[in-house]
Write a protein that binds this DNA or RNA. Structure first.
Lengths: 333, 333
DNA sequence: TTGTAAGCGTTATCAT
DNA sequence: ATGATAACGCTTACAA
């Protein structure tokens, strides 16, 4: 800057004003600066600007390291952040649960704070996030937007699929298909995605006379084929409608049913719930609910930027994106 | 820092030394500083450190916005960067080809330069990268590692799958399966991944007497089913071995062959090349070559950090990761 | 419309 | 083992 100022014959301040944009410069001065800066390929130093202004433009994004579905969420986030002149500082958490992952999240948040990020978008490892590391975030008033999995113990903005409504719709679809003896395959109560879908499903079932349901609880979202198979062993046709809270579970169930020669959808209707965003419309062959990850990402980014600008402490925002029912032939018409 | 220094009764410099690590502090002083810093939840400001030292620790990573396969590359990059105390500044390019994408890359690189990144890991939009924007990188001596697609016109470190060796192996597999009349389905010469696989394939075919090949050139890596179908229309069994340079192309070909009632692998052996990293081992049902995206990412990150540390201008590095042949039943035993 | 002076949070350098 | 001072590249506040 000094060099440009000298070359043009003005003070550094005038050059600074030129790059800040909003100043009143004489047209000729501005043009001279532009030319000289161009000649020197000068680029303003945003790190310094960040330091001076307290606004780094950096948003920390913390996701699980197997991106899968979150790859599309991430694309939505990055696109929106970049549009508005902000930056995506990406951190990935390896491992899904347990104290190690929480420890890792904690280290990550410290790194981000040291970089003076202006906000964090986080897919939490689990719901047990009353943990220490939020004190860091809270005490510094760093805006936090949580996606996909809700936190029980910390009030933060949330953006994600409307899992409860999805669960309700799932029940309605199966019942509309004529199913009356329903099976709910869930995936552990400590993950809100599973819990909310299950809750919505059960609530809807209860609202219908003559419809019953049982619940098979699986430890995670893996196929769990053996467990499902064991459960169906005695009487594979005990149910005429099955809802699995995740597509991968649904896949496990599909294989178990096929192995037992159950005809789908004639004897049993099977319904999954999409977490399988394979990018190019690749899906498992099970009727399911498509989520809208890019939309979730965009909303999360908008949300965090609003928080970062207005320092007003309005009450937490809850933005739910509906899932879309997508028939793929495993539910009776 | 000033506040901590005052509280402990030392100068800022002593506190600074404590956090820089390497200084000789009296144990009691160090402990006092530690305690006071803890109490105040002090976190050093890395933006300022970056400004002072010229080392921001930021690495710009530029990938296509449909991450897919690159999601795993990204995980490898991020893991390695974080291990060594660096940060991943992610930028995504929307759209695959054409001047718009190049324009976007150019804007992105300017943003990154303003953030004083210490290196760039880039999956280029195409091979026409003699374009303006590299002047920015070159004139500032910003280390650049290119992944997956090689650049013709710019000497940079390259990390990616050994596509040529893969193409050779593909030919060998088909020939070993007894195929003699081969079809090569390629995807445009301006993308090195396709060009290299094709070149390896052809070179290997030429080394075998009595083996012939034809080439069908497709515009991109999409299924291109109609085009392939049209090509096979006259005589679907004209070939007894087909190599598609991408799995999605192979999928298009598979559908075309099935529609024409060609028995696979009895009448025709079909071989793809993996670009379908769906994370959890989900793959299309075509014998193919698996790539190792996480490894590519890790190598790219190592490479960029080495460049960023040593400012020595050694000659460009070329790191090729072999693809692994993975039979899935579409090539005769 | 432009300039001067001071300072942001930290470290390099020299001194004690 | 610790301190004083200047400096990094830029902006804010005030002055002209």
């Amino acid at each position: 800057m000094q060099a440009i100022a000298d070359a043009v014959g003005v003070s550094v301040m005038t050059v600074s004003r030129y790059f800040s944009g909003k100043a009143n410069l004489k047209a000729s001065t501005a043009e001279a600066i532009r030319l000289e800066a161009e000649r020197r390929q000068y680029r303003p130093n945003r790190l310094v600007r960040a330091m001076k202004s307290g606004r780094s433009g950096l948003i920390g994004v913390i996701l699980p390291s197997q991106l899968g579905y979150y790859g599309e969420v991430l694309a939505g986030i990055q696109e929106t952040l970049a549009e508005r002149g902000n930056f995506t500082l990406l951190e990935l958490v390896h491992g899904n649960l347990g104290p190690a992952a929480i420890e890792e999240e904690s280290r990550i948040i410290r790194r981000l704070v040291e970089m003076r990020i202006e906000g964090i978008i986080l897919r939490p490892v689990n719901d047990l996030a009353d943990s220490l590391y939020f004190s860091e975030v809270r005490s510094r008033d760093i805006p936090l937007v949580v996606i996909d999995r809700r936190l029980k113990s910390f009030e933060a903005d949330f953006v994600g699929t409307d899992d409860e409504a999805g669960g309700r719709q799932a029940a309605r679809q199966l019942i509309a298909a004529g199913a009356r003896r329903l099976l709910l395959i869930s995936a552990g109560a400590e993950v809100s995605t599973s819990a909310d879908r299950a809750a919505g499903f059960i609530a809807e079932v209860r609202a219908h006379r003559g419809v019953t349901h049982e619940e098979l609880s699986c430890p995670d979202f893996a196929p769990n084929e053996a467990r499902i198979d064991a459960f169906l062993a005695s009487n594979p046709r005990r149910f005429d409608g099955i809802f699995a809270v995740g597509d991968i579970l649904a896949l496990g169930c599909l294989r178990a049913l096929r192995a037992r020669q159950v005809r789908i959808p004639d004897e049993v209707s099977l319904l999954g719930f999409g977490a399988l965003g394979l990018g190019g419309g690749h899906h498992i062959p099970v009727s399911s609910f498509d989520q809208h990850p890019a939309m979730v990402g965009r909303l999360a980014a908008q949300c965090i930027l609003e928080r970062a600008r207005e320092s007003e402490q309005a009450s937490p925002v809850l933005r739910l994106v509906p899932a879309t029912y997508t028939p793929r032939g495993t539910v009776r018409a």
